[in-house]
Design a protein around this nucleic acid. Structure first.
Lengths: 124, 124
DNA sequence: CGCAAATGTTAAATTCAGTTAACATTCTAC
DNA sequence: GTAGAATGTTAACTGAATTTAACATTTGCG
């Protein structure tokens, strides 16, 4: 998926996490990301245009299949990074803060190597 | 140092690296960061205002003591991250790309823990 | 020295992602 | 069913960091 800015990834991830059971409200996304409702509304317009989100006027938010796949990818990076930070002794609080930002900037290759590293250090 | 945006950190780091021996030209900073000369010029104005850079009109760029300290901190994060990525098997090219971005977002705590981790895994 | 090339500066426009204020719609409790 | 609260939308604005085009200054070579 191209055009994945930090902001787009944040929205996708938030919708994904909030939407585990059902639809998602703009207000909740705004609360999680600490932005205004109009900011969410505008972003949703762009995500709909990109085909990542389904939403009608005044309707609830839902990820499309493509949006879900993209969100899962972002979320997997998040989880991997979080686990790594915790494993080297970073506090849960700091890990949460840091990986929310870092996750947007690590390449496929680094994800893969970090994943292998975590796998290797799990056993043994 | 507060107000350290990603952009400010990039400029400081670039001036630091280019300035190892002497003064720095806007053109070179622009080339390294792949931005226009006016962008550098404007950014220098802000860095001078923040007391991080010394520069007169049409003059060369130099870090102040405070700017140098800030740049060294940024650069140390860069090096630490780069070393870590290389150590888990990421290619030099990808490591360079990734750590240029990630370095702006990792907290003091994570820097410390990652540093300890690297230290521990050096020996043994 | 003097002129051309390199470098630095300024101004105006653009883009991105947000904001506030005002208004529209929907939901919910009585 | 309706009123008021919650939620969604729109428009106009902001600020950061960029761009391009035009102009100013400095440098260095013949």
């Amino acid at each position: 998926m191209e055009n994945m800015t930090m902001s787009v990834e944040d929205y996708l991830e938030t919708i994904y996490v909030l939407g585990r059971d059902g639809f998602v409200k703009s207000t909740d996304v705004a609360a999680v990301l600490r932005v205004s409702r109009p900011a969410v509304n505008k972003a949703m317009g762009e995500l709909v245009a990109k085909g990542l989100v389904d939403k009608h006027s005044y309707g609830k938010i839902r990820l499309t299949d493509e949006g879900l796949a993209a969100a899962e990818k972002v979320y997997a990076r998040h989880t991997l990074l979080n686990d790594f930070l915790i494993s080297i002794g970073v506090s849960e609080k700091t890990a949460a803060i840091d990986c929310c930002k870092i996750e947007h900037f690590i390449s496929e290759e680094t994800v893969e190597k970090l994943s292998q590293f975590m796998e290797k250090n799990k056993r043994g």
